[in-house]
């Protein structure tokens, strides 16, 4: 086997051994809405301390991801043809 194929096989093997990544799905849209409301409320009342903002941004980002996940999963209920 030549070097290129050997390297590609090793790379694929390594990738498949790595744990699968997935965003934890939101249980339902109500939870999602509640989470976003919490973040928005906190953003309004918390002093603009950078560390806190950072954590809130991350939380909001995770919630946004979950929202997309939920919407995309719902699109799977009837594949479009």
């Amino acid at each position: 086997m030549n070097t290129f194929r050997k390297a590609a096989n090793k790379r694929l093997q390594q990738q498949q051994q790595a744990p699968a990544e997935s965003v934890a799905p939101a249980t339902d849209s109500e939870n999602l809405l509640q989470g976003i409301t919490e973040v928005i409320t906190e953003l309004e009342v918390t002093p603009a301390v950078l560390l806190q903002k950072q954590a809130l941004y991350q939380k909001l980002h995770a919630l946004h991801q979950q929202g997309c996940e939920l919407a995309s999963r719902q699109c799977m209920t009837g594949p479009i043809h």
Partner: peptide
């Protein structure tokens, strides 16, 4: 916006 990160 659509998609999300994972292998489903």
């Amino acid at each position: 916006v659509f998609g999300s990160r994972g292998s489903q």
